[in-house]
Computed example of a mutant assay.
Amino acid sequence: MSGLQFPATAQDWRAQARGRLPRFLFDYLDGGAGDERTLAANVQAWGQATLRQRVLVDVSQVDTRTRLAGQDCALPLALAPVGLAGMMARRGEAQALRAASGAQVPFTLSTVGICGLNEVCAAAPAGAPPPWFQLYMLRDRGAVRALLEQAWQAGCRTLVFTVDLPLPGMRQRDVRNGMAHRGARAALLRASQLLARPGWVWDVALRGKPLSFGSLASQVPGGRDLNAFKAWVDAQFDPSVTWQDIDWLRTQWRGRLLLKGLLDVQDARAAAAAGAEGIVVSNHGGRQLDGVAATAEVLPAIARAVGGQLEVLVDGGVRSGTDLFRALALGARGVLIGRPWVWALAAGGEAGVRQLLAAWQRELLLAMTLTGVTRVADIGPEQLDRVSSQIRP
């Protein structure tokens, strides 16, 4: 009966996405590294910040608008880059870009998105800002330069550079579903999961072709084959990357640079010294190293250390507009959300993402109203009644 209900929360969208996606795709999206302790901690940690309710304050003119990375936004939120999002719904990244544009929030295209830069940019309504673009440091620096130029020519002016992936994390759900294996047994396992979702096969696998990696079409030989693509990507992760490579990147990119994947104050200070305009406090959604701190736990110290020099954003476990409010109160300028928008996309397409964002904006407005705040810029620690000792003061 859950499929007949109207989704009201991120978890509702998750339940509907689970019923539509083949298991290996749902688990790829939903899962984390190791025993998934950090994945769970990301969600739970936001609840440790208790809001301070205030009354009899004039809240007749509450405004959720702000600016992120120089872009006007209806609320302090951007859609995070999610690899393979175009396999969760037909031409998924293009649908998500349209939804984000309609909601007046930024959309970030992953390097390993199914839809390429040109297709996503073409999907934007007239006059809408271009997407942000996410990139990894690849061994092939020529490929990096080519992708940067492609993004610039497509109109992108904000680069989200992921720095916490020298090697891919150990994601046990992917192993169980045969995503880390070749051969007949793995193929049969995935085929059985596909047969259990004929609606997805028809709508996405058949009507959504080509399921290739659009932005990497000129870089990856055999890019339409997931196994060939995985082999190329595994060979391209570069564990030798240091801050000197970020210095090199700064010479290659003319636009705004956000470094994503920092959890440490010292690294945040190094990002400022390297010329980044902003950072994303992130543990890759719990998908890289299980056992590291939840992002809510380290955000306040990082924001205090570099908030005057950098635009501090955060991701990881944000599941509502109230969590968004908590993130701002703990020091972030805005948040990036990943799984929630893709759950909504998988379950309801563009309309689903629009509904999710509209609900979160209403929740943020309600939190502001009942804490007596009328402007996003005024949200701070004074709007918190109590913060758990787990969140580092």
Rank of each mutant, 00 (worst) to 15 (best):
R145E: 10
W341S: 13
A276F: 07
V160Q: 04
A123L: 01
W46Q: 15
D35H: 15
P131H: 11
V120E: 05
Q309D: 14
V55D: 10
G222F: 00
Q11V: 13
S389N: 11
G349R: 01
R354P: 10
Q236R: 12
R173T: 14
T111D: 04
M170Y: 15
T251F: 07
R190S: 08
G19F: 03
Y28C: 11
Q104T: 14
K260P: 01
G291R: 01
L117P: 00
V57Y: 02
C156M: 03
Q153Y: 04
F229Q: 12
D234M: 11
T158V: 14
G285N: 08
G102R: 09
L328S: 03
A270W: 00
D245F: 00
R141W: 11
A359W: 01
A301G: 13
L263Y: 03
L330W: 11
G317H: 01
A103F: 06
G222I: 02
L357V: 05
P210T: 10
A228F: 13
A272G: 12
K209C: 15
C121K: 08
V376T: 07
G291D: 04
E93Q: 09
V55G: 12
P198E: 09
P198L: 06
Q5G: 14
D264C: 13
S215N: 06
Q95R: 02
P168H: 12
G348Y: 05
R392P: 10
L135F: 03
G183I: 01
T64S: 12
P22D: 07
V373T: 12
V318E: 05
G19V: 05
F24N: 03
A272W: 13
A272R: 10
W232G: 08
P131I: 07
Q309V: 14
I114P: 02
R224Q: 10
A303T: 08
M170H: 15
M179S: 00
A276Y: 02
G34A: 13
S212V: 07
S389G: 13
V144D: 11
L97N: 06
Q61G: 04
C115L: 13
S320P: 05
G348W: 06
V318W: 10
E363Q: 15
A99P: 00
G352E: 12
Q104A: 14
V312Q: 05
G70M: 15
G116N: 00
V353T: 07
F133G: 01
A344R: 02
V201N: 08
F229D: 07
R67V: 08
L263Q: 09
V163P: 01
S101I: 12
R91V: 06
I279F: 12
A41V: 09
W132C: 05
L259P: 00
W13I: 01
I337L: 09
G3C: 14
A274D: 09
R326T: 09
A94N: 05
W341H: 14
G222R: 01
D267S: 09
R20Q: 08
A143S: 14
V387N: 03
T242N: 06
C156V: 07
Q153W: 04
V342R: 00
D225W: 13
G83Y: 10
T9N: 11
C115R: 01
R23S: 08
V314D: 03
A196V: 07
R52G: 14
S212L: 06
W341T: 10
G317P: 06
N177I: 02
T369Y: 02
T64D: 04
W248R: 03
